[in-house]
Write a protein that binds this DNA or RNA. Structure first.
Length: 268
DNA sequence: AAATTTGTCAACCGCCTTAAT
DNA sequence: AATTAAGGCGGTTGACAAATT
């Protein structure tokens, strides 16, 4: 009855991943693609739960991940999206290429939350903590325009709030006050179709903008910079048949995954 | 210099939805 | 239709690092 168990609970390792485990997982996924996490630990020679492998891959090992702190523009975007979506971190993360829900959630809890509180803004409702009773007061009170969309300007204390209500009639592009954040927000908000897809829980559009830039892919710039010395093996990707973690590699990887899926489909 | 506090974030836990049997 | 696991998600924890006393 039902499906087979995800993994043999006995002998499953927990805790921090070692460099060796990471290597095995990356090697396996780059070769075979992402599919059937239940089978991954066994096939990759890992004493881990499939769930743990998926988490490790999506949150830390994926080649398209950015590393490091969120930029101001990204932070602004997170605040704006949070005002609209609440704690739906995966939805928010879907709009920030190279960022994971876990990373955004952590950043929210450790940085943004405090920042907003410091500014006198409730991080849950995005309303002022001490709301003035008079409407005219709210007009003069920085960041106290509940009916208006959110916006953090470059100035520390000038935060225009977004209504936590899911009815946001004003064009979100009007929120943008910095060029950088404008660009980011434009990607999401300026397009009704995109916004609708967000609300309708449709799959996000693939963001491939970095593929067209003259700059090296972020993955090459940042992905493994902060890793400990044990991970220098990653620089020797050829060891497991990977020339680099750049664009081509990832495209191949995606193709590999698709092939695997197709093969799975053929079997059925 | 040592002890304590605070901050950060990777990883786990448990719940929910979806899908397989 | 009922049962069970996979996959996905958000909340929470705990180890470690950095800052402070």
């Amino acid at each position: 009855m039902g499906r087979q168990p995800c993994c043999d609970k006995l002998g499953v390792k927990k805790g921090p991943w070692t460099a060796e485990e990471d290597k095995k997982l990356i090697s396996f996924i780059l070769t075979n693609g992402q599919c059937c996490w239940r089978a991954v630990p066994k096939l990759a020679g890992l004493r881990r739960c499939g769930k743990s492998c998926r988490l490790r891959w999506t949150n830390y090992l994926r080649p398209d991940l950015k590393r490091g702190l969120l930029t101001e523009a990204e932070e602004q975007l997170v605040i704006d999206l949070h005002a609209r979506l609440g704690n739906r971190w995966s939805k928010i993360a879907a709009r920030l290429p190279g960022r994971t829900d876990n990373e955004i959630k952590n950043h929210w809890n450790t940085h943004i939350k405090k920042k907003l509180l410091k500014m006198g803004i409730d991080p849950v409702t995005h309303e002022p903590l001490h709301k003035e009773p008079k409407a005219e007061d709210s007009l003069t009170h920085a960041g106290s325009l509940p009916a208006e969309p959110s916006n953090i300007t470059g100035q520390e204390n000038e935060v225009t709030l977004n209504s936590s209500s899911e009815e946001n009639s004003r064009s979100p592009t009007e929120n943008c006050s910095t060029d950088e954040s404008s660009l980011l927000l434009d990607n999401i908000c300026n397009d009704d179709i995109l916004l609708n897809s967000l609300w309708m829980d449709e799959p996000p559009l693939i963001d491939a903008s970095w593929k067209n830039t003259d700059n090296p892919p972020l993955v090459l710039q940042n992905t493994y910079q902060s890793w400990d010395e044990d991970l220098t093996w990653l620089l020797e990707c050829q060891d497991f048949g990977i020339q680099d973690f750049g664009i081509d590699c990832f495209d191949k990887f995606e193709l590999n995954a698709l092939k695997s899926l197709e093969m799975e489909d053929d079997k059925h």
